[in-house]
Amino acid sequence: MSEKTPKKRKGFVLGYYPGMNMWTLFFFVYLYMPMVVLVAYSFNDGNRAQIWQGFSTRWFYRAFINDDIQNAALNSLIIAVCATVVATVLATLAALVLARGGEFRGRSASLGMVTLPLIVPEIATAVATLSFFAIIGFQLGMLSIIIAHTVFCIPFAFLPIRARLEGMDTDLEQAAGDLYANAWETFRFVTLPILAPGIVAGAMLAFIISVDDFIITLMVSGAGATTLPLYIYGMIRQGITPEVNVISTVMLAISIAFITAYWFISARGDTVKGH
């Protein structure tokens, strides 16, 4: 080795652009700062939501004993569970056909149809669904919300299930067939167990989408059925107390918990694909 100390290298790093670190940092600050503010303001002591007046947990207490909030939460839960179950079953069946049924006429049209609710702007879906219920004279309420939620939850349940199926080795099913399993037995003992994480992931997405939905629910809810987002919206509109920050924080926590669980389930799923 040469004796002289190595000189400091200026070093041209390929693919590096000056400032991109700071830009990314700024990006994440922009993305998370509002949520941090929201959580912080749920501990606001004052009577007005936006104006910070000191730390307190009293609004948490107020929110949890509020009957209206409890009712809204219960409604949200009932709607989300019903919509999730129906949407997940429909999506699983459709995904099995579209990912495993081979090529057939109308395949891409069917795919477009199933994912249609993703493309149409929510407000258009909302007023169209309202018009539909109006024309058939359907009473607006819990049931109308469940139906509307089921429809737009289908693609959210569908996509993770299809991804799972497409990552799955078809040899497994052929091997089952080779070992004397009929179509149903193959599905029951091979496809379904491997598919299960995909179904769980799809159901979780559907659930969170239903719980979070606002616009469609707003249009098809009628008078009686208030969900949590509708309640929050109402509170934002009528001059607001930190109670709304508290519920919002709780909703945030629910979403984050679900999506984190979803992330881990679908990441674990990757290991079964066999590279």
């Binding site: 080795m1 040469s2 190595p6 290298r9 200026k10 070093g11 041209f12 390929l14």
Partner: peptide, 23 residues
Amino acid sequence: AGFEQPTAGEIFLFGEEIEDLPP
């Protein structure tokens, strides 16, 4: 080529030191 920088040492191209030049 300049895609990496040496940890130590020099590289000359027709007598001109190039190891700090970008590719």
